[in-house]
């Protein structure tokens, strides 16, 4: 379903104005093992449910922000500055 995202700067806009940046996950410390780096680089939670993710307002204010979206229904629950 096509849906609207509320950019913290510009307000509600069509999802097609934005670039999806993927789910948010923490970068491991430099000393992390090869397995941890592999997990960070490739593995994803890929959750069906509320997911914290990055979005970029490509056709607007050109800034990155964070959103919480229900991935089963595409309902955007919350958007905020990082």
């Amino acid at each position: 379903m096509s849906f609207l995202i509320s950019c913290p700067n510009c307000g509600a806009r069509s999802v097609y104005e934005f670039r999806f940046g993927g789910e948010i996950h923490d970068r491991p410390p430099v000393s992390a093992s090869e397995d941890e780096w592999t997990q960070y680089l490739y593995a994803r939670k890929n959750k069906s449910g509320p997911q914290e993710e990055w979005w970029y307002h490509r056709a607007g204010c050109r800034t990155w922000f964070k959103a919480v979206r229900e991935t089963a229904t595409n309902t955007v629950i919350e958007t905020r500055w990082p």
């Binding site: 096509s2 097609y16 670039r19 993927g22 789910e23 890929n46 069906s48 991935t71 089963a72 595409n74």
Partner: peptide
Amino acid sequence: PYSSYSNRSTLP
């Protein structure tokens, strides 16, 4: 262009 589990169709 975004991940989702929704099977709904879109106009775009």
